[in-house]
Write a protein that binds this DNA or RNA. Structure first.
Lengths: 340, 340
DNA sequence: TTTAAATACGAAAACGTTTGCGAAATTTTC
DNA sequence: GAAAATTTCGCAAACGTTTTCGTATTTAAA
């Protein structure tokens, strides 16, 4: 790979010192307008491209942001990354994207790769297996800006972006109750996950407010495998005391529920109503169409990025505040919770 | 950000020269086993992490691969990236992921950012607007390894990975004909796209083989906007001479068709049968379930990565061969093409 | 006219690695 | 026991930037 001309060679071509050329290209006040013009035009003519590694080495910053998500095949995370890229690309930042595949060991490995300054900051959503957070804490203690979204980590004092998990789950559950559900189940990935806790809390409170008692067996703890989840949910649906309503805390479990229902003689929404957190654009095309709680994914990504850019580009920014910023979700009612 | 200890400091701690420590860590034959042990244990104790930029600067390689896709919210591309990451991460490579949003100007901008060696190679699928390929050619001429998949670029002499577009489209169209379709339309993004050309060729040949003449108006040229596409397709479906079968060359147009059909009093599959290239795992949950041609996305990503890793890590590899590698798709028949 | 200030640029160091070369110290060879 | 070969390590340069400091030239002030 021919990397093109270097600053030194460009300087030689211009009969100038490298320092002068560098300053001219960086628009330093110490360089005359005449020289700047000459330098810039020659740089364009020779298509000079500064070496990013020399610059990173010298300036101790990489112009790169690491994004870590639990899975890539997911509307929500894809949208968030789109939002991040939208903002960061305008400021010349590059995105390293990693998927943990919900595996905390992979997560640790990725974070250890990020110890050396390869990225100027991290934007992440933790894996469903993450309970010990020492690998996150280590990087944060070193001063690497870390920002969480969706699946946040309360132990790390930094800024986190989430949706109104509690209220949305509360409203979703309330909606199921209003539609006549008497026995409502809650589907979750891991109990450790921040979103699980908050959404479950909203679910429980809504039940209680309606004078219903949450049954432990109705809080179904699922895993990463779609097949296993489908089986698990199917068993729940075939049990003697089966639920007639489901609040799914994540999209994939709603889809597993659809798959599970297909293997029974039940029907949605007649025998089972379901509402799910989901960012699928095609929720309306499912059979039956799925009532969803949709997060403002792209906005979340954008807000993460805006804050980060401010932190990274302004001269003497304070550390990211230990705060949780909430951007509300939107409930869209469709056939899966219909009374007919 | 505290980047930790440097090689020099580690050397000082050991009373050794930096060169010795470097060689010890890189397992050079010039260093005694005793010294290696001492160095390695001290490096672990002090958690020494080599600075990637110093190394990149010195070695003129970044251990980074750029992946450029037309859109992120897309099952196929997400799966391909998963496949790429699967392989590259094992070899210590990092992934810079860019989305062009089907915008050739963004594509050009991204490629110009990659002129300076930030990535050791590029794996990409071109945007639907890409017809002039000079921005790709420039980088390839410089010696940067570029590898195409799915939407390939025949003008650039390098290795490309695709599925059997022609055959799949041929078989898909044949299937529609066998199901009784008499007037089959073809939905496409841009005419320039390699996948459009090949899939359209398969479509046309299947029609001809059945003694049917392809109508020009039935080759519908769509765009990037879902709303516009839905409207376009709706108009086609409401026209006096409407199709009774559709082969969609990309997933998003099948979904737009579903949306369009909802706004008519037509029904799939009774009035209109549809088959589409698609990697949606939930094609079976749509209403009605969608007959799909599914690409081996993850395999494509893995094969791209394997070839690239070989090229990048083995000492004196030749340039990537100018060849097209085909990995076949799989057709899954569902309700959307059912006769009832 | 002399001196001080401002302007415009160059020399060199630094960032943290890797590596060619040289040179002790040790071992082998004859 | 001397010479040669081998082992083991250090010195210094190099990668391509940015920046501190110094300095020559020009301009402004006294």
């Amino acid at each position: 790979m021919n990397n093109g001309i270097s600053l030194k060679e460009l300087a030689a071509e211009l009969n100038l010192a490298p320092s002068t050329v560098s300053r001219a290209l960086n628009d330093s006040y110490e360089i005359s307008e005449a020289t700047k013009k000459k330098v810039i035009s020659m740089a364009e003519k020779l298509n000079y491209q500064p070496n990013p590694f020399a610059r990173s080495l010298r300036e101790n910053k990489s112009k790169t942001i690491a994004v870590i998500i639990p899975e890539r095949i997911n509307y929500f995370f894809s949208q968030v990354i789109d939002g991040i890229e939208e903002i960061t690309s305008e400021h010349g930042y590059h995105l390293l994207v990693y998927s943990t595949h919900e595996d905390v060991e992979k997560e640790k490995k990725i974070l250890s790769l990020l110890q050396n300054g390869r990225a100027d900051a991290i934007v992440m959503s933790v894996s469903s297996q993450t309970s010990d957070v020492s690998h996150l804490k280590r990087l944060h203690d070193r001063g690497l800006p870390i920002l969480f979204f969706d699946r946040i980590c309360s132990e790390i004092p930094t800024t986190k972006f989430i949706t109104n998990d509690y209220e949305s789950a509360f409203e979703g559950t309330k909606h199921l109750i209003q539609q006549g559900c008497k026995k409502i189940a809650f589907l979750m990935l891991s109990k450790e996950l921040s979103i699980t806790k908050e959404r479950h809390r909203g679910y429980v409170d809504a039940l209680k407010m309606a004078g219903m008692e949450p049954e432990p067996a109705f809080s179904l703890h699922c895993c990463h495998s779609d097949e296993d989840n489908t089986q698990l949910i199917r068993e729940l649906l075939l049990s003697s005391n089966r639920p007639d309503g489901i609040l799914s805390s994540v999209e994939k479990l709603a889809l597993a529920t659809y798959q599970a229902v297909k293997k029974t003689n039940l029907s949605i929404p007649d025998d089972l109503k379901i509402i799910s957190f989901s960012n699928m654009s095609i929720a309306g095309l499912l059979n039956p169409s799925l009532t969803t709680i949709t997060q403002p994914a792209e906005t979340i990504g954008e807000e993460c990025a805006k804050l980060l850019i401010k932190k990274l580009t302004k001269p003497r920014q304070p550390d990211l505040l230990n705060q949780v910023i909430t951007i509300p979700s939107k409930i869209t009612i469709r056939e899966s919770t219909l009374v007919r």
